[in-house]
Simulated assay, not measured.
Amino acid sequence: MRLLATTALIALTALPAVAQDWKTDYRIVRFGILSGENEADRIARYEPMVAYLKEKLGVDIEIFSAGNYDGVVQALAAGQIEFSWLGPSAYAAAWTETNGGVVPLFTSQQNDDSVGYYSVVATRCDAGYNTIDDLKGKTMAFADPDSASGYTVPYYNLHAQGYVPEEFFGAVPFSGSHEAGIMGVVNGQFDGAATHWTNETAGNIQRMVSKDMIKEGDVCIVWTSPLIMASPFTARTNLPAGLIEDMKKVMMAMPTDAPEVFKQVSGGEASTSKAYVPVTHEQYQILIDMRNWFKANRRS
């Protein structure tokens, strides 16, 4: 794990009417990002957001990036960061780890007004796999233990459908990230990999195509999960109320105030996000229930 501070080379403009009292204790505000894509790309994707927040909040902003999802969860639990973009399962992990010490503030809304996405299992299009049944005895890669679309949701739902992963597949390794899983499929390391998919134009596969990491038509989808609530921007509950409200205010204004920044943070050209909308803890309770199911089954 490491902290990376990015200094925005822009002049400050008129700041919003936000409370000043929290700035005495928080001259630097830190937010975490998950390891769904390679580190260089994920840091570059969030640099414009760092500049935007520094301008609007009037304090220094630092990005926290870890090698896996749990590194960010533990940083929140230890008070090393104030905010973080978390996947639904990572939020459930953070909420459990902190005994309810985190709160979801908002999430992305798509152009069709939806606020969710899917887990999919992808295979090489030329491998001849058409359904999940074709992967019996094959190598199926999950992304990260704290990834909703990369592990929690596909494992839980496949198990519920009668495909107990450790028994049905030949091997079930963790690839380490969504990008690594798909690259492993394309390169023949894995037969299938779980990743996230929003719609026909947005998702991990489409983003990797847009970055020239893979080619259009390299991978095909053979299984799709039920809808998953979209990833929440999350805060520690022990922060000053003014800091939480000010961060929520400037972030939710970003799609209008800084649309190019919003677009890049949302995934670049492959993004179909149009706004941020408020969310509540109750909308993610199902992920906590799933994680509790995992714990119960491991004990048994």
Rank of each mutant, 00 (worst) to 15 (best):
M1S: 07
A14G: 07
L15R: 15
P16S: 06
A19T: 15
W22I: 14
K23S: 03
K23I: 08
T24V: 06
T24A: 07
Y26P: 06
Y26F: 15
V29W: 02
F31P: 00
G32P: 09
I33P: 06
E37A: 12
E39F: 12
A40G: 07
R42L: 08
P48C: 03
A51V: 04
L53S: 10
L53C: 11
K56L: 08
K56R: 15
K56G: 02
L57H: 13
F64L: 13
S65W: 10
S65I: 12
S65R: 11
G67D: 15
G71F: 10
V73S: 09
Q74H: 07
A75I: 06
L76V: 08
A78L: 10
A78I: 04
G79R: 06
S84Y: 12
S84L: 10
L86R: 01
S89Y: 09
A90Q: 12
A92D: 12
A92L: 14
A92K: 12
P104F: 13
L105A: 09
L105N: 09
L105Q: 11
D112F: 00
D113E: 14
V115C: 14
S119K: 02
V120F: 03
V120R: 02
R124W: 13
D126S: 09
Y129C: 08
I132A: 07
K136H: 14
G137A: 14
K138M: 13
T139G: 07
M140Q: 15
M140Y: 15
F142W: 10
F142N: 08
D146S: 05
S147G: 05
Y151C: 05
Y155A: 09
G170K: 14
P173T: 03
P173L: 04
F174D: 04
E179D: 13
V185N: 11
V186D: 13
G188D: 11
Q189M: 13
Q189Y: 05
G192W: 11
T195K: 02
H196D: 12
W197L: 13
A202Q: 14
A202C: 15
G203S: 11
G203I: 14
N204I: 14
Q206I: 08
R207D: 02
S210K: 10
D212P: 01
E216A: 06
E216S: 04
G217D: 08
V219W: 05
S225N: 05
S231G: 01
P232L: 03
F233V: 10
R236K: 11
T237Q: 13
A241L: 03
G242R: 03
I244Y: 07
E245G: 02
M247W: 12
K249H: 15
M251R: 00
A253R: 04
M254T: 03
A258T: 08
A258I: 09
V261W: 02
Q264D: 04
V265C: 02
E269M: 08
E269K: 09
S271M: 04
S273A: 03
K274H: 05
H281P: 01
Q285D: 02
R298E: 15
R298V: 15
R298P: 00
S300F: 10
